[in-house]
Amino acid sequence: MEIFIQNFMDIFEKYLPALLAGVSAGGQYALIAIGYTMVYGILRLINFAHGDIFMVAGFMMVYLSASLPWYIALPVVTILTVLLGYLVERAAYKPLRSAPRMSIMISAIGVSYLLQNAAWYLTGGLPKQYPVIPFITESVDVLTASTKIVTVITPFLTIALVIILSLIIKYTKIGMAMRAVSKDFETSRLMGIKIDTVISMTFIIGTFLAAVGSFLYFSNYTTVTPVVGAMPGLKAFVAAVFGGIGSIPGAVVGAFIIGICENLIKFVAGGAYATFSDAFTFALLIIILVAKPTGLFGEKTTDKV
């Protein structure tokens, strides 16, 4: 028995860095995934531009912190990101509200294309170094592994934000309106809910969380490029589908599972399978879509398969 425990501890210590990185990545994906899952719940739209808004938040921090101290830059970036999310919804999705779903999705792809090209133009296409936010980028020892403080903070901050969000959705009036709209668009409109306000609010919450996610993500990975949002964006979307799209706890659980698995794959066998860490995420997506299209916590609907 003792030998078994000893063995287990050895393996645990060996994989601890990967686990820590995984939990941290999972937290960051979770913050982005909530934006996807909420928008999908209400508009039935895969917001392809969400990952790019996350990228823009990264760039804004790079430029603003050049002239502002970080404690002012953080809230300013958050506000600007939220504003961008709101504007994108008003300009690109609202005019298409009565159009077929495919048109809105194409519009989302167009916005993503525009944001990437604009970012490339404004930054000259060169990778930028993310500014150091004091305290959270210092290193810390967790048991036997050494890591940045941000890695440790991320999961706790994520869970705290998710709890606050769940409370908002459960107990406030706007939260109730959101639930109503995601259940039945037309009926809630008839009941006097202002659909546009609810949708705007959804985008505001989603982009706020994406901005927080960008602070954590880029403090960890530190370079910002115009296409940096695409992969985390897609992965967060996979997390949202995995957990059952439309469900916030589902998105969070899915994000943590994907983050941890991905980092373990990068780590096992000395990184021999590292090329498959992205592919694994998509394989997981296809397996869940084929086996259980509603995801882990999704509600039963008939229009998915």
């Binding site: 895969i46 897609l234 996979v238 592919a279 879509l289 084929v290 998915k304 398969v305």
Partner: peptide, 27 residues
């Protein structure tokens, strides 16, 4: 497996396959 899926689910699954193929080729 994927043609059973509808609209955006099919889109995201095929997109995922394209990414998997890209990773496998570079293996």
């Amino acid at each position: 497996p994927v043609l059973k899926l509808k609209s955006d689910y099919l889109a995201i699954a095929t997109l995922g396959f394209a990414e998997i193929i890209r990773a496998v080729v570079q293996w």
